[in-house]
Design a protein around this nucleic acid. Structure first.
Lengths: 336, 336
DNA sequence: CGTGATTTTGGGAACGGTTTCATAAATATT
DNA sequence: AATATTTATGAAACCGTTCCCAAAATCACG
């Protein structure tokens, strides 16, 4: 099985170039200067034989695997995937290849995944969100170079790539307020996630700053998914508190809200305005196109990857805090 | 850097269990029977020291890396990601870890990615769609165990996991036809993709079988993305040929179509019916919810992974051809 | 041109496992 | 009970690199 490849080793190159394997290794890694003629001879041999160093042997000897582990959460949820794409892009051209393991936002599965990754001697780790407590991640960070994506851990300065959720939520709420809405509901993500907490905080602050009192009946907890959006509308209607705008903590939930409203014959944005969060690719194509808070997802992933690589090379790298951007489309309009 | 881990080796275990490292290796791999007492001693030592075999050393010695390469295309496009999720699930619990490399549907980038993967001594390869010609993939398949996902290569029987696109498209078109539509347009994906070709074939066959003549003005080529959906509607309107239903070759394009119609004030499904293809997660939440052809994306990925693992273990595995399922929602209705 | 300092180079010991092989012990056979 | 066979074990070779160290070659300089 898979027999035909990887026959030629550094020894073959050495023989053909009439040098020792040490020398071959040296020209390949540029460790030490080697005579020009030998260098070209080696390079020639490498080309002739189409030699490819054995990654595992190299890894064993050098004590590094040239891989980075990526702990993903729920791959196939649109936002996460965009970040993942960024990671792939950030890693491209860097010698490092990514090994994936999915945690699915389930604590024990995350532990399992990290275990797998570490056992594989990954040189570094990119950790996505997740349920794993800050403390555990800090411990981990002591063992292996690590960057956290989409989550802020205070004790790991300059190792976290995240977006200012508070500001984003503030911005969205403020926008609605400025449009004249006063009864603005906020549909939160799962409140066990820091992101959701921060967004809620941003919403509240904006309300307060605008001189509005907080009505807890206007806050509904969802779980970031579409279905929780439709549920939320039903809850809201049941509560009977009037509202004219909904700020959803994720675009997916906004979709759900939109559908529930559609079912009830409530027009968007004429009767109720909606603002989402994330700016997924399809949000520009909903009816009406969704006004939402954009997170630079790809950029976040890319930065995480680049930061990790820099860390591995002992190069300095400063991770910026990313800001959100309000993308105004058509799902929200002036009230009255 | 990353100093503190992987200190304990098989030697330490051997010493602690008072056996040779050969024996340790044997109990760990179950290669040969070893005396019960020694076995437990070894296991105990492993547990005590929390020993984890060095994957690279093992790989070097045994000539396998316990990794499989995954050539992805455009990670972060919803359908692909679902398949990817399946791959991750299918690999879980199998000793193999996935290494990703993205080809982005760009030939040279695919070659580059495959190169990277092979150089890493992956034990097997999962290839997603892509632009790489069949021939190249066949060659590759001769060098390394390989499974193709979402694409059918005739010369690689039982190594391709794909869906019957023809039947799916036929089904969708037939459904529209049975609803009384006669002027049914088909918005295709990029026609350089086999998938798109097959779906077009299915559409045509259904039209013919229904006694309708093919009007090439009713076929528009898109590129699977949302934007091409809105463009298509404009093209169609420009052509001036009347139509009452649109079968889009992807849900994303269906979204675009929906939006374009919305902009023109054309009601869906009252005036124009829409059927999509894929059944993305959000398609159940569009307004109206999208009637579409479901592909078992996750299942496809999972099967690909399982088939590859079976192949690597020299176990028999028969890959089924997956069938699509028409998911009737609300974007299509009876004509007249 | 000889000598010491410096650069290149090759030999060989790691790296941490697996696997072959020979041997000692246990078991089966007659 | 003696011999043949099988089974369990450890020693050592090997996988393909990197890298330390010492030898060889080159260079600088008086």
């Amino acid at each position: 099985m898979a027999a035909t490849r990887q026959n030629i080793t550094i020894k073959d190159i050495a023989r053909r170039a009439k040098v020792s394997k040490s020398t071959v290794s040296r020209v390949l890694n540029g460790t030490t200067a080697v005579a020009e003629e030998k260098k070209t001879a080696v390079l020639q041999a490498v080309a002739d034989l189409n030699y490819q160093p054995n990654v595992m042997a190299r890894g064993l000897a050098a004590g590094q695997s040239l891989t980075v582990g990526v702990l993903t959460q729920n791959i196939s949820s649109p936002y996460n995937d965009a970040v993942l794409l960024g990671v792939l892009q950030g890693l491209r051209g860097s010698d490092y290849s990514p090994i994936f393991a999915d945690g699915s936002w389930i604590l024990e599965q995350e532990e399992q995944a990290i275990q797998t990754l570490v056992a594989r001697q990954v040189d570094g780790l990119i950790v996505f969100g997740g349920e794993t407590p800050d403390e555990t991640i800090c411990d981990l960070a002591r063992q292996v170079p690590l960057v956290v994506a989409g989550r802020n851990i205070a004790k790991l300065p300059n190792q976290c790539v995240y977006v200012n959720n508070f500001a984003g939520a503030y911005q969205a709420t403020q926008y609605l307020l400025e449009l004249g809405h006063e009864r603005v509901v906020h549909l939160t993500g799962k409140l066990s996630h820091v992101d959701a907490q921060e967004r809620l905080r941003g919403y509240r602050q904006a309300m307060i700053d605008h001189g509005l009192s907080l009505d807890e009946e206007l806050v509904v907890e969802g779980n970031f998914q579409e279905q929780s959006g439709v549920l939320a509308v039903e809850t809201l209607l049941l509560r009977g508190r009037p509202f004219t705008a909904i700020f959803a903590g994720s675009d997916q939930m906004a979709y759900g809200v939109r559908l529930a409203l559609y079912r009830r014959g409530i027009r968007v944005p004429a009767e109720v305005s909606i603002v989402g969060f994330d700016d997924l690719g399809s949000s520009a194509y909903t009816t009406p196109p969704l006004t939402t808070v954009r997170q630079p997802a790809v950029k976040i992933g890319q930065t995480a990857a680049e930061a990790l690589v820099a860390m591995l090379k002992n190069e300095p790298y400063i991770i910026p805090v990313f800001q959100t951007e309000l993308i105004v489309r058509e799902s929200a309009m002036r009230y009255r």
